[in-house]
Amino acid sequence: MTTVLLGSISRLVTVTVDGRELRVPEGATILDVLRDRGVETPTLCWAPNLTPINACRVCMVEVEGSRVLVPSCARKVEDGMVVRTDTEKVRHSRRMVLELLASSVDMDQASTDVQRWMVEYGVDPARYGPPAPPEDDRAGHRVGHHHAPDGSTAANVAQPVKVDNDLYVRDYARCILCYKCVKACGTDAQFTFAISAAGRGFDAHIATEYDGELPDSACVYCGNCIGVCPTGALKSVREHELREDGDWRPEEQTVTTTICSFCGVGCNLELHVQQGSIVNVTSPSDHDVTHGHLCIKGRFGFQHVQNLPDA
């Protein structure tokens, strides 16, 4: 007898996207449908290997019957749903979300997609005024209080980089508060819970307990927070140093896929190599074993393969 493994059987529902009627599986999100049909939708807090976070509000679409826009990443399709992705309202919200972020956060190291969206949607962060100077102790702000602004500068999250361990840095001047790192550290991957959102409103930020240093926290240095960070707020010390020295050259990097040799799990690794040296290790988010997440050994334990005799 042959056993045939069937995936979960799902009913199809009919939705209309930008005038096109589509039959899509029940339980899919609007974003799933859009990505499947090649409708480019900007996302920041969404990742294929995390449950939808629904915080950045850049993937918004119009759904008929809804007074406000709807996050495509989190909203599941319903039979008869009418979705519009290219209306003035949608474009305006996407432009403003990107513009508000660019005016308050350093987005220079966000992906090339993000850079392109900012151009395509016509983002102009300069109209909010020159950025306010960096602050050393943003975490010290009293909750629910702030100094009345005079409007001459634009408040932002500029602050010094936190370098408190050998493996990775936290550059919160680049943090858009997408919560991806919190989820990867917590229930979506690692179950370590070393970090959480702290504070409130514009002073909300990602922190360990008492805004302490990573070595004093529960952090196990798996680096899965780095793996999901969309803006370069979290990155390896190696990448940070290369960037600081002006030696970071992504266009010259090659990616080699291999399997981690540390244990029997069989995690796929992607070795990012620049000038003959590994500069980063990632794992594909669609890999059955890792879902894009690794442990400290897979992500950072590559020094031994580079112990080449000095030429």
Binding site: P149, G151, R200, F202, D203, A204
Partner: peptide, 29 residues
């Protein structure tokens, strides 16, 4: 601005920018 929870971008940053623009208006911008 004080009472925004900070979770979503439109409210977290929008309330800050709204207050700044209002400040500029009242200064005669």
């Amino acid at each position: 601005r004080d009472e925004s929870c900070g979770q979503c971008v439109p409210c977290r940053v929008g309330t800050v920018r709204q207050e700044e623009a209002l400040a500029r208006l009242t200064r005669g911008a």
